[in-house]
Design a binder for these strands. Structure first.
Lengths: 211, 211
DNA sequence: GGGTTACAGATTGTTGACAATCGCGTATAC
DNA sequence: GTATACGCGATTGTCAACAATCTGTAACCC
């Protein structure tokens, strides 16, 4: 699972070949194990494997990142809707706590910490939904977006907008309003999609130097 | 992939153990291959594997079937929205053709053929959306629902309601109205969820004899 | 010189054997 | 009689060797 972490952390270059023998020596394990991991990663969409031609890191282009975020949007909206109904008081307290954490980080301009809190907030809401199917689908989708997770938050003005969207979302949740929670989550991730779209053009050529 | 077909066809009993050695002799292949297939099936949610304890067919209870259908609903609604924008004229013609097929089947009471046409209609719409991410997620979800696919259509009155919902959906698509298409798809699958819920109680004990 | 074919290296797919672990039945102590 | 420890059969996890396939190179023919 070391390899999995490296892929998710984005340490490996796009299109990089993953030769089984190399991975064996690096991970100090045998080809059977490496093969199992590669199979799993292929199904998660993190690597591509071709018969007798090996595996390589899958590159996710801007178009696919948008697609994934769109799918994420409708699924997280469903999760938010469920969370508004199913969440325990502890869930809501945790969500509010994370949201409260985010404001000073935003003011201080600590975008990395803000982005991490953002991730935790979303995960906590999904957990509160008690919707295991959605949870499973979303964890698969998010793994593919690691390379793009910091790209939206770096767009000027985006953090402020993000915080406003989160505020509406948290408010809907603590008022246990499913429709409003779902709508707020949709609006939030629509914002992310729009930002991805707008960022697509100007980062098109700097992207190769980024990964 | 023989095993995969058997699982999807529902030929195997719920909770049935899948011993690697047995599968080897049945499928005339080696354990390495069987292992790879089991790994894939585990990730698709069709089997469960526990360390040193083997794999068994995963049972999907009523609650999870509802969850999966809810996730399906929001994803297919997204697909319908995209299809309303992206579909070619050929796509729309095909969708209308399948929908036209369904009416006589409904009148004749051929529910099996109706259910199959229903499946093809949904697949064609998803294909027309050109949204590969959604397509991938949905194919995974549908594989888990095989055991329930005929259960809703057998509920009295459901086919008629289903046809009305499909008519609204197809109409929205041919008018290329994304919002209305998404809403129609949501309404349709909300109907399925409601039917699943209502069918849950009365089929609770006959379910074991069904699978 | 352009194109085709044969070969070599590298890499993956497959197989069989061995080690590790689990569940269960049995023996034993109290 | 009950509870605990032990051993056995069954099953999965791991490993190393062999077969099949692909890619690039070089010789060869026209």
């Amino acid at each position: 699972m070391q390899l999995r972490r490296e892929l998710i952390a984005g340490d490996l270059l796009p299109q990089q070949r993953l030769v089984e023998a190399d991975l064996c020596s690096r991970l100090h394990t045998s080809r059977g194990t490496v093969r199992a991991v590669l199979l799993r990663l292929e199904h998660e969409g993190l690597v591509v494997r071709e018969p007798y031609r090996g595996a390589h890191v899958r590159v996710i282009d801007e178009k696919e990142a948008v697609e994934i975020t769109e799918a994420r949007a409708v699924l997280e909206a469903l999760a938010a809707r469920q969370a508004a109904v199913m969440a325990t008081d502890d869930d809501l307290a945790a969500v509010r706590a994370i949201h409260a954490e985010m404001r000073p980080l935003l003011k201080r301009g600590d975008l990395l910490a803000y982005s991490d809190a953002n991730r935790r907030l979303h995960e906590r809401i999904i957990e509160a939904s008690r919707h295991t199917t959605t949870q499973r689908l979303l964890s698969g989708l998010k793994a593919q977006l690691v390379r793009y997770q910091y790209r939206t938050i770096l767009v000027p003005g985006r953090p402020q907008q993000s915080w406003a969207e989160h505020t509406a979302l948290v408010d809907a949740l603590v008022h246990r309003d499913p429709d409003r929670a779902a709508a707020a989550m949709m609006a939030h991730l629509s914002g992310v999609v729009a930002t991805l779209h707008s960022a697509a053009g100007q980062e098109a050529d700097s992207a190769s130097g980024f990964g």
